[in-house]
Write a protein that binds this DNA or RNA. Structure first.
Length: 250
DNA sequence: ATGTCATCTTAGAGATGA
């Protein structure tokens, strides 16, 4: 089974890249984030034409998550309890339960959005108590946290920034400690499999990136291979995030 | 730190978010 997660930064704008990517990589299940469209505007038809069933949570301009599956789609959930923004979609996809998450950015340490981010991560952790770590499941998506200093290109530049604070890292670690494995993708250019590079200042070209997109898998998920698809971050009309692709057995 | 990108408002270029 092949799964993937990708913050597409608008599914509408990304469709000319997303559709050929799906044909080439042929994942069975895909978690999308930042679809940035209302449910009524979601491109169901071209995705269904590729064989995917779709569950989408979205309300327009911001946020938006989806699960695409060609191995079945059941028990769909479109919300994280207590948080109205569309930042979580989950479904049972054949033998694997899949959750697509778009964790709030936080913006800055003195912004209310940072408090919201920590609360959202706490709610996500509590949501896991409705599951069993002995069942095959993955939580994947843009978690907007770099787990270690190695997961940003220069940790000294993040001294007073979000994404690297002890509180954010502890919140992400608490998800892992529930019973999940932070799936290690093959190293990319350089030693760290970054998944995000700012559009500005030639960051991708200089490989000044961050690892903020994760696949967290429960113990019954046997990972065969995992990689960051840097090619999808290159060229015209790319998202600022690259997909993470994982081959696994359940 | 910020050289970009996407969307919405509302018919141009500015605001917002990342």
């Amino acid at each position: 089974m092949r799964i993937a997660t990708w913050n597409v930064n608008s599914v509408g704008a990304r469709l000319p890249r997303l559709l050929p990517w799906l044909e080439e990589v042929a994942p069975d299940v895909v978690a999308l984030q930042e679809t940035k469209c209302a449910d009524g505007a979601f491109p169901y038809l071209p995705l269904q034409a590729l064989g995917y069933e779709v569950a989408h949570s979205g309300d327009g301009r911001w946020n938006g998550t989806a699960v695409l599956s060609r191995v079945g789609l059941a028990d769909v959930s479109l919300t994280l309890e207590g948080h109205p923004e569309p930042r979580l979609t989950s479904a049972q996809c054949g033998p694997l339960h899949v959750t697509s998450v778009y964790v709030p950015n936080g913006r800055s340490l003195d912004d209310p959005h940072y408090v919201y981010k920590l609360a959202w991560l706490q709610s996500l952790r509590e949501r896991l108590d409705g599951f069993d770590p002995a069942q095959p499941l993955v939580v994947m998506g843009d978690v907007n946290v770099a787990l270690t200093d190695r997961d940003v290109w220069d940790s000294s530049l993040f001294a007073h920034s979000t994404h690297v604070t002890p509180a954010e890292r502890a919140a992400l670690q608490s998800l892992i400690d529930w019973g999940l494995v932070d799936v290690a993708a093959r190293p990319g250019k350089g030693d760290v499999p970054f998944t995000y590079w700012d559009y500005r200042a030639g960051m991708m070209h200089k490989n000044l990136g961050m690892r903020i997109d994760y696949v967290l898998a429960s113990a019954p998920v046997r990972v065969r291979d995992a990689y960051v698809d840097r090619e999808a971050r290159k060229g015209k009309g790319a998202s600022d995030h690259a997909p993470v692709v994982v081959d696994l057995d359940v």
